[in-house]
Nucleic acid binder design. Structure first.
Length: 232
DNA sequence: ATTATTTGACCTGA
DNA sequence: TCAGGTCAAATAAT
């Protein structure tokens, strides 16, 4: 009846604990908007871009019919990967999803199978426009005409990006990382993240399968570009 | 038993 | 104050 014990928000304690309030409001995060068109209607929760995502929230966006799902990298706590993405089904195109990637993967996990062609262009927060990724369907459900119509859609948004296709999914990731390294800001490692990592380490130590024999650091990845010792 | 998702509450910037 | 983003307990799935 009166079990309204909601007066103990542990969360607020935690936030106060780490409240140096240094939140640089103008801190630019790396944001990439991508429009993914699939051949068949599906739920936005299962868009496979080769990475492991964990859903942590969903919100109804006012003015949009479809809710927006919030995902973060599964390895956020085990490896401190800050990659986050937001997926929202397009209002007009039920076969299209507008995906917003914030930050990029630092977990160095080799993606299983990335099925999108990738467009090489970066964008900063506040900019409009979408890059286009077209899901590669197992059947011939996606024809070039549909691709062109999707491109027109992007064109309507007054942003055109050239798209590049890679045969190897690893090459996509390397390309994205190289783009990131291009103007990666030196403002990393927030204390809050460190705290989260520390608290998560006790959980993670039961299954620390650090199998990244090759991808121990970004430098290694860059070295791999011209010295392939890991099977590339 | 462990891991992932759902969902309402909470937080924050505009 | 509102809308968007995140948290975390409850629940579901594996």
């Amino acid at each position: 009846m009166m079990s309204l014990d909601k007066k103990t928000p542990k969360r607020s304690l935690k936030r106060i604990d780490q409240s140096n309030k240094k939140r640089r409001t103008s801190e630019k995060k790396k944001v990439e908007r991508v429009k993914i068109c699939v051949g068949t209607e599906q739920e936005g929760t299962s868009l496979d871009d080769g990475h492991c995502w964990r859903k942590y929230g969903q919100k109804d966006i006012h003015g949009s019919k479809n809710p927006r799902g919030y995902y973060r990298c599964t390895h956020r706590f085990t490896r401190g990967c800050l990659a986050v993405k937001q997926v929202q089904k397009s209002d007009t195109e039920p076969l299209c999803f507008e995906v917003k990637y914030v930050e990029s993967h630092t977990c160095n996990i080799t993606p299983s199978t990335t099925k999108y062609s990738v467009s090489v262009s970066e964008e900063e927060e506040g900019n409009r426009g979408y890059k286009l990724r077209v899901a590669e369907q197992p059947e011939d459900t996606l024809k070039s005409e549909e691709m062109m119509s999707s491109l027109e859609d992007v064109d309507n948004k007054k942003e055109i990006f050239r798209t590049y296709s890679f045969s190897n999914p690893e090459m996509e990731i390397i390309s994205e990382w190289i783009n990131l390294m291009d103007d990666m800001s030196p403002t990393t490692s927030e204390s809050g993240v460190t705290n989260e990592l520390l608290s998560a380490s006790s959980v993670a130590n039961s299954q620390m399968d650090y199998d990244d024999s090759c991808f121990s650091s970004l430098e290694n990845i860059l070295n791999l570009s011209h010295d392939s010792t890991c099977g590339f």
